[in-house]
Simulated scan of single mutants.
Amino acid sequence: MGSVRNSSTASRSARVEEMRRAERARERRNRVLTIAASVVVVAGLVVGGVVLVHSQSGKKDSTASAKSGGGDNKGSGDSGHWVTGKDGVRTWSGKLTRTHVATKVSYPMHPPVGGNHNPVWLDCNGDVYTQPVQDENAVHALEHGAVWVTYTAKASKADVDALAAKVKQTPYSLMSPYENQAAPLILSAWGHQVAVKSASDPEVNKFFTTYVQGAQTPEPGASCTGGVMK
């Protein structure tokens, strides 16, 4: 009888111990699950915070872009004024922005010498246009290092023909009529402009030599073909 009781007691103790081990295992699992859940919650809060910061930053960037003439804003984004050198070349002293926009742009100078512009440049591989071109495309050509020759109806045919011949022989240059300018003949580059008296004015060759792919070029070597031909 004693032996049977001892055996029963031992079996009961073994079952109790097994139950205790199972309970401890459950507690460990619960602790692990609790910790894992806490980590997920914290991670979610961190990611949410980062997304919120980026969202706010994006809103600020969009606002700044709109103020500077980006997006659908019609402003050129330019600020500054002309400074005229002894040789008569005018240099824009100030900021010339370079944001691509799909809208018309209101430039502070005519012809424009920089600022926000169309994503597509005007072909400027010695191209001579007999009709007015879009300022926004021409400005992009200036960004590529082109010199833009413009003229009004007051320019003589001889001067127009002579300058057209020069442009046709000069990669990174273009020419077009432009009535809304202060002189009959004007040469423009990114940030620089000069009015010349005639096609034989010494400033013509000097301006071409200095500014065709000159040091002022924001994107030297960029293409002057494959853009828009108008």
Rank of each mutant, 00 (worst) to 15 (best):
N205W: 00
Q193T: 11
P202I: 11
S188Q: 00
K197P: 01
S200I: 05
A195P: 07
Y211R: 04
H192K: 15
E179N: 10
L185S: 06
F207I: 09
N180S: 14
L174A: 10
A182S: 15
A183F: 11
Q181N: 11
V212F: 08
T209Y: 05
I186V: 15
S188A: 15
S198P: 03
V204L: 10
A189M: 09
N205H: 02
H192A: 10
V160H: 04
D201E: 06
L163C: 03
M175T: 05
L163R: 07
D161L: 00
E179F: 00
K197R: 13
Q213C: 06
D201I: 09
V204C: 10
K197I: 07
G191N: 00
I186F: 04
E203P: 00
S173G: 10
G191C: 01
A162Y: 03
V196P: 11
K197G: 13
Y211N: 10
A162M: 04
V196R: 12
G191S: 02
A162E: 06
K197L: 07
V204H: 08
V167P: 04
M175I: 11
N205T: 14
T170H: 04
S198Y: 10
Q181Y: 07
Q213V: 01
V160Y: 00
A182D: 15
K206N: 12
K166W: 03
S188M: 05
K206P: 00
S176L: 02
Y172K: 12
V212Q: 12
P202N: 10
T209N: 15
Q213M: 05
S198R: 08
Q193D: 07
V194K: 01
L187F: 08
P171R: 11
S198A: 14
A195M: 08
L163T: 08
D161Y: 01
F208M: 13
Q213L: 04
T170A: 12
Y211F: 15
Y211G: 02
L174N: 11
N180A: 14
H192I: 05
T170V: 09
Q169N: 14
N205G: 12
A182C: 05
M175Q: 10
S173A: 15
A182N: 11
A199M: 07
T170I: 07
Y172G: 03
N180T: 12
P177V: 09
L187I: 03
E179P: 02
L174Y: 01
A183R: 13
V160E: 00
S176M: 02
